[in-house]
Amino acid sequence: MTRFSASAPRTASLAAAGTALLALATAAVAPTAVALTALATPAAAQSARADRDPAAEAFVLSEANHVLAVLGDKTMSVEAKKKTFRALIDEVADVPKITSYVLGKYRRSLTDAQFHDFAVAFREFANTVYESRLGTYKGETLRVTGSIVRRPGDVVVTSEVVGGQTKQPLKVLWRVLKGDDGRWRAVDVQVEGVWLAVTEQQDFVSTLDNAHGDINVLIAQLKGEKKEAVKPH
């Protein structure tokens, strides 16, 4: 939420006084080191190497900048942006892996044909969802702050989104995997602690649970045909 700007010059000097007050208060209560220590010792340290992966970080930074450049391009029409993103998606994200993942326990029980139908519907659904948000970009930028190697080729890259509508830096995490072709791609993204693909899986699996595992019910919902198909009971 945005702030209400105070502009009177009087405010500035008072704000300076406030800053002094703040310095005093923080000095009195001291331990900024706590936060730093917490950051420096990830819980994962015992179970895996907590090294950073510069290649994964570079991937996130360059793809993010690419995407943001397209979003911020005022000379491009919305239609052109949509086209660009549809072409870009497979470069940025590992769509096949995500598609399998969001089906959860139901993935294994699907025939190839059923999986194919779902994959088509899912891709179209995702495109529609993202395209509806193209207009919400207001000049935010992203900076990569670090990474945690989960296992080789499986990295969580940490970043911050600043500027635009963000009042304070917004933490965004990227789960990136290195594919067989040696290229990095994202499979999940976390904002405010919420992983997108994880949420998607739990949403879809619940829908399938309530539809006795009928993939066609889920596909129909993705196509927006019957939003009411899953009745709460």
Binding site: A43, A44, S47, A48, D94, S100, Y101, V156, V187
Partner: peptide
């Protein structure tokens, strides 16, 4: 930080 080992495998 979140324990990355708790994250699901893709």
């Amino acid at each position: 930080p979140e324990d990355v080992q708790d994250l699901p495998d893709f």
